[in-house]
Amino acid sequence: MNINATLAASLERQETASEEAWETTFRQMALFDLAVDMEVGFFLSYYRNFAIPSIATTLHTNAEIQQRPMKRSYDTAIVIYELIANGLESDRGKAMVELLNHVHRNVPGSKDDFLYVLLTLLVVPIRWIQQHAWRQPTTSELSAASRFFTELGARMNIKDMPASYAAAADFFDRYEATHVAPSEQGQHLMDATVQVFQSRLPGPLRPLATKLISTMLDDDRLTAALGLPRANVISRTALKTGLELRNAIIRRRPLRQQPHFTPGKAGSSLYPDGYSLDQIGPVNVPHSPVHTGNELP
């Protein structure tokens, strides 16, 4: 059997997926075919909010990131992956939407601020994939990803969601063109969360954490706003070479058989024995009980 057969078969399914199968298509993209690059994109989208002074001020005032940077970072990822893995209409998905709405209730910010934060989770991972992944996203995947975040936005009462990925990217660029700027609060948030990235790096690379982040962001205006060192030709070339090598290896391996994320499963130093949904989110936010049969004992 050709070792690339499953990769090719999955790509064909993704290319020909129907619009009605948007949730399945996006799940396949995020948890299997392009899982590692989606995770990198989600990771980078988290930092981008710190470069918007109005959003940074709100996050800084809340103080959750400064006090518990590891928990805030991991919980943010867990919420989005729970929604992707289980579906927006599942019990676990509804619990995560309820948590998001509860956490953001009475949070100051304009309609465009809330829309931008949500669209970072769509546009930033897609652009990373387009530039660095082992293959390009398909038209069906772009449509499915857009539909996923449109549906999530509707459940969070975020108005005027863009009708397509192209429209979302256009809003994203226009918003950043007029809102990205340095702020003391944004740089404090960035400093507080660098340790999360450092903890995931091999020891010898940890002193280079800020340089690696700025190279992956690849946006001088953004890195200046965040107080990060400017990327240079050497760091950009090293990243490009490393990713090209990784992509060559991926293309020669079978499609992964296990999802990139399994709800409730251990996967970090924060939750070494796994987690239940009532552990996710700010420590001072009450949770409604969720009984799905999938909770850890």
Rank of each mutant, 00 (worst) to 15 (best):
I158E: 04
M161L: 14
M161C: 01
P162Y: 13
S164N: 05
A167P: 02
A168P: 02
A169S: 10
D170N: 04
F171R: 03
F172Q: 06
F172M: 09
Y175N: 00
Y175T: 01
A177L: 05
A177Q: 04
H179R: 06
V180T: 10
P182G: 11
E184D: 15
Q185R: 06
G186C: 12
Q187I: 09
Q187A: 08
L189M: 11
D191A: 15
A192D: 08
A192F: 06
F197A: 13
Q198Y: 01
Q198S: 15
S199P: 01
R200P: 00
L201N: 04
G203A: 15
G203H: 11
L205D: 09
P207Y: 13
T210V: 14
S214G: 08
T215L: 08
T215G: 11
M216D: 04
M216T: 07
D219I: 00
R221D: 10
L222T: 04
A224T: 15
A225N: 04
L226A: 03
P229V: 09
R230P: 00
R230S: 14
R230I: 14
A231G: 11
V233Q: 15
R236K: 14
A238I: 14
K240Q: 14
T241K: 11
L243P: 00
L243H: 01
L245P: 04
L245E: 09
N247G: 06
I250V: 13
R252Q: 14
R253H: 08
R256S: 09
Q257E: 14
Q258F: 03
P259D: 04
H260V: 00
H260C: 03
F261Q: 09
T262C: 06
P263T: 07
P263Q: 00
G264A: 08
K265N: 06
K265C: 07
A266K: 12
G267D: 04
G267E: 03
Y271H: 09
D273M: 07
